[in-house]
Design a protein around this nucleic acid. Structure first.
Lengths: 192, 192, 192, 192
DNA sequence: AATGAATGAGCGTTCATTCAT
DNA sequence: TATGAATGAACGCTCATTCAT
């Protein structure tokens, strides 16, 4: 049983995390705690009641983000879908988080060490699912003899490249614009 | 004929650029002018004698970096080398600048607009050469029917992915460690 | 009802404005925010919690100063006093703010544009009252046929001259020392 | 006999003083030594060969300015001119130096102590001549019974007031625009 | 639990002055 | 004599963090 206070506290905590997500997505991780407080409609000090430091806020935010995105990704694995369907589903999930994800892959190296674990975790979930799908295709001998991690890293490399260099390829969402092209050609690459 | 003064001035300028290169490579582009001054062993004010603003310092540094790396790359095009040789040469060049290049591809979006042009320029030089090498192979029908820009972006995507996620793959230089594997498998991907 | 917090905040704001008033009066408007912070016994950053920029601090200070001085001057108009009484009252008001006023009339041209409006406003209040008093005397044909603005500017010119050149005329307050002489002779000048 | 070197040195010194005069007239005394060096077409360091500190430069500049303006004023006294002619001549002299003089009377209190002596000297020369002219008129009983220093300070007060508040009265030269009005009305004031 | 005023170290930048050339 | 690169203290301002309310 949660007391009224605990419920209130968790609500505020969520408010801050939601705001931080939006602010970081829009401004990058150099956004200030003041901006986040304003976006969350709480006082500046409240942030530090819930999170002892900004780094801690970022870590908690990324943990939540990791869980959320992984939950989305898990739903993919249940069905017995084709490679094409899986890749499309993966991109569709990323589109939901596109702005934030873009910031994340760009600025990951300047974020606290623990943030990286979240990032690794997300990638390993995708890897796991991709593995399953590919293995099936491999049995049918349609996939080249290339190590799984290269197959996986090529895919992530390709879409991360398009995301980080968004400005070269699209005015709005690069994933929305180039989704089909990316999937089609990536499959061509890994197929015999 | 340069006067002793001019030589001295250029030496200091080089000192600052070299220091900035090292500091940015180690700390990322959020490093401060104070850190750079200390690394260059000059007073803080001296930086602003040579560069009116930090942004200008960054742009000059990137221009120098761009020229340097392009010079390296141009040497490649003169010879009639194989795809494998070219990719190895490309990686070898990047190894020389690995830490700095890693920061650059990560943080390019937070750098001044002019910095992006330098980055685009570097990439287009690589693209140009890769194009030549691939076209030759394409005539021999060994390359898949995939648009050139996808071929190019897959390569950059792959090595940028390994660079930005260095910590996943290697303790030291990820390019040194995975060079052969990357080249070998990338070629497998684009070949029929 | 004000909360304790609001009271405290206003107190600090007043502390800063009071300190700024004193520091500017003593050192001129080239005094630094550090000096003001020290004089106010608050940390340097606190100044910028209350005033986004120095210019804003100066403008707020001048607005307060303008209100205060105008309030003093308004009290004069209610009575049906003689020219002599009015001029004496004007000088008496200025004596209260002498050091600050001296800096203001000296450095007005290097202050932000909005500061000038405050200054103009103060002068126009004086002008208004002087006008009323003079008009009465003019009806009695004791004042020369001279345009009102010249009458007004002669008065301000005279006392501003004594203020800016204080060091020529007095060790302490030039207005206190020369008040009677200035009034007496100014009246002689404008009377027939 | 001056050596070639001495002649050259004096020429450079003059170059710097001329430039400083122009720069201070245009920008006020907060202009930097760099601006002056550029305007004088000499190197920054050269300024400090001729003047140990900026304050010393300002003092020397004001001494030269004082001599120059006093020389102009001295020419006035030789003739046996009327009060009106004298005041017109005074204003005409000031018009030659208007921008610089305006800065001087505005910023005199933030200039080094010695600068004030120059200013006092200029004023006493004007005072001397005005005295002579007025005394003549006084003998003819056309001037009011007012102490000479008040008569003098009213005049300076009036024109200084117009100069410091130039922006209230004119877009260009306030002395050129209001010269006749000022003289005419000032004479009205001091005449019986 | 939430507030928000206060803190102070640190930022990029300016500028009078120095001194080797 | 003239130069101009180098200096470093000081500037206005930012911001994560603290703590009395």
């Amino acid at each position: 049983m949660k007391t009224k206070r605990q419920i209130q506290k968790e609500a505020t905590r969520k408010l801050i995390l939601d705001a931080a997500y939006q602010v970081y997505a829009n401004e990058g991780f150099s956004a200030t705690t003041n901006q986040i407080a304003k976006a969350a409609n709480v006082s500046h000090g409240t942030i530090f009641v819930h999170f002892p430091t900004v780094d801690n806020l970022i870590i908690c935010l990324l943990e939540r983000f990791g869980s959320e995105i992984n939950e989305h990704l898990h739903l993919l694995s249940e069905k017995d879908e084709s490679l094409e369907t899986f890749l499309a589903a993966h991109i569709n999930v990323l589109i939901c988080y596109e702005d934030f994800y873009k910031r994340l892959i760009s600025e990951i190296n300047s974020l606290p060490q623990e943030a990286k674990y979240v990032f690794i975790n997300i990638q390993s979930v995708v890897s796991l699912h991709l593995n399953q799908v590919i293995e099936r295709d491999k049995e049918q001998k349609v996939i080249k003899e290339i190590p799984m991690h290269i197959i996986f890293n090529s895919w992530l490399g390709l879409i991360h490249y398009y995301l980080t260099n968004n400005y070269l390829f699209a005015a709005g969402s690069v994933l929305t614009d180039h989704k089909d092209e990316l999937i089609l050609n990536y499959i061509k690459l890994i197929r015999k």
